[in-house]
Design a protein around this nucleic acid. Sequence first.
DNA 1: AATGAATGAGTCTTCATTCAT
DNA 2: TATGAATGAAGACTCATTCAT
Lengths: 208, 208, 208, 208
Amino acid sequence: MRRTRRPEARPDEILDAALAAFSELGFAGARIEDVAARAGLSKGAVYLYFESKEALLKALVRRLADRVVGAAENLAASDGVDAEKTLRSLLTYMALQLSNPRVSAAPRIVIAEAQRFPEIASYYRSAVIDRAERLLAGLIDRGVAQGVFRDIDRAVALRGCAGPMLVHMLLSTVFKDPGNPGPDPEILANGIADVILNGLKAKDGASP
Amino acid sequence: MRRTRRPEARPDEILDAALAAFSELGFAGARIEDVAARAGLSKGAVYLYFESKEALLKALVRRLADRVVGAAENLAASDGVDAEKTLRSLLTYMALQLSNPRVSAAPRIVIAEAQRFPEIASYYRSAVIDRAERLLAGLIDRGVAQGVFRDIDRAVALRGCAGPMLVHMLLSTVFKDPGNPGPDPEILANGIADVILNGLKAKDGASP
Amino acid sequence: MRRTRRPEARPDEILDAALAAFSELGFAGARIEDVAARAGLSKGAVYLYFESKEALLKALVRRLADRVVGAAENLAASDGVDAEKTLRSLLTYMALQLSNPRVSAAPRIVIAEAQRFPEIASYYRSAVIDRAERLLAGLIDRGVAQGVFRDIDRAVALRGCAGPMLVHMLLSTVFKDPGNPGPDPEILANGIADVILNGLKAKDGASP
Amino acid sequence: MRRTRRPEARPDEILDAALAAFSELGFAGARIEDVAARAGLSKGAVYLYFESKEALLKALVRRLADRVVGAAENLAASDGVDAEKTLRSLLTYMALQLSNPRVSAAPRIVIAEAQRFPEIASYYRSAVIDRAERLLAGLIDRGVAQGVFRDIDRAVALRGCAGPMLVHMLLSTVFKDPGNPGPDPEILANGIADVILNGLKAKDGASP
DNA sequence: AATGAATGAGTCTTCATTCAT
DNA sequence: TATGAATGAAGACTCATTCAT
């Protein structure tokens, strides 16, 4: 049907379609035909651009990883020196992003398939998790230097910051109660940032 | 070959086997035969106890959900009145539990398959998430009454408490770096509890 | 349950059950368990009496064949000398018998399975068809000698006499219209006998 | 191997293959692979044209039903006004047709499977049996008007006419004695038509 | 570049049959 | 005799992948 359209955009269109299909049906549950249909192509055409279903998944994860962390890195880099303010921006940005099913699909798919595709798990670890940890560590370093953050274990910080975002994402997508719209994302994002930042604050020692 | 062995234990043995198989191979990737082999049975025998592969998954989720939340509820109930102390116990307990692959398999499988099996998502929401939220809300209520917690949005509290645990679980299972043993679970659990509790503390208002 | 009942009757009870099950579900569609359930026994018990499912079918056909043709032979033998009258009795008897699903099940099962079990087809041919043909031939002979029947080809006579009965059976069982009770069996039986007997009558040559 | 051959003819080719396979092996006994092999295709290809094995059976019955009754109706329509002559043509035609295994397969399969597939039984009743009854009733009406047939019950007529054909078919296919070629079909067909027509003749009342 | 017919390996599921009790 | 748990072979059906056009 709609043939004549920037043919060099095909791979990206197919990845968009794959994102939609995998996100909706799961990787195992989505057939190549589902991806093709969503891309407005025939089954066979997908193989002109991707070697196999698994290659499609890998390419998808790669693209998504780049996008997400890249955006976060840009945000952090362009946001001045105030560590607390930057972290709050970052947390709010992530919470809002992850409320969007198009974005949340990525980590969901990875979580779902990582067990079966160690290569993907390992790629994601280095391309996203490690990078995110580095980004966060930099921020904490800065905050500690500025005297606003306690010098907590970076592993703890990562879990503390990423976790609430992730749960928020799950609760607003897979486990969304159809009869319950859920709290307003912006308010929630701020509330979560409040708790985390409060948790990181230097004021008074935390544990007894 | 070896027939007739504690036949009343069969369903539970099969569920154990299914947990192992699904956790390792994913639900879609595990064949009934994989489950059967792990249970020391033949393919056909599984069908004497469970109607279908999907029924097996549902039964598994049901059993796991009961176990996990039940344990948490017991812990909370038996832990005295000090809300902060109880919450810390709970968080540490969860962090330690979730470092155990046998336990973490449950939420991992659910997250992975929830998209494809709305029934499971909805069951898990009411049987685990809602229950956990209620448990946590009770604790916060108590803490607020005791003057130790801020009266924060319960939705925020849930995300704030469950999130770090979940990320911790993912990082210590699916995304575990084989070459890197990771931080000591107990220390980490305490560190996470510190951040969260500090985040919830009543002392000073959170955001600027 | 009902255990203590002439145990030597078991095989017959099982055959009754098999008749019901095969007739309802077809031979391929009926499981041994269906037969067992109808006989009030366990699956395994059936194998104490019959070697295999196929053996069960063969035994069933054998028993049914004996019954039906035996009855017809007795009727013919005990019915005096008037060939026309005897044939009419026989035809009416068959039509009535075949309206009964318990009886019609036999030929239906045989017709359905004969293709797959040549042994059964061949047994049925010799045990039922050939015997029926002989019985009929004897009657025709007598009728010809008495001057009441034309001396028609015996193969034609068999087809002419058995056919209407068979179609009647099919129309009143498998193809029965649930909303339509169908004609009264007795009236129909007589009508059919009329046509056939008229067709066999000696009076005038048949077609030009 | 040999791909892309008159692809529009595929469904019909597959139905031909199914007819052969079902007729030889029975519906339950024939594997999809048997059908595929006979059509010169692979297992999977059959599913490109038919949803399921049962759908294949239904399509087959539908096609066969159309063919057979259609042919009979055409014959009856094109055969002039003499009712007796037309009926004789029809009976002879049917007898000859049914001696051909390709044709006889249809009713045999239907009889065999009708019990298990009520939908098929009901379709066959309306698409074949009812139509045949209507065709025959029209002929009898005409014959009665012409004074050549007795005004007999149409249900009796149907059984009287169709029955001998059906038995003839069974005896020349499923119950065929391999060592016995059987009577010549044409002579037999004429003999049967003689008996039936004689049975229907108006001359003298039939039974006392 | 694109199609879509075709393939065939792979999986769930069923069920005749066996056997320890 | 009788049970019913267990087996394993077999078959319907799916779908990733190929390839002639």
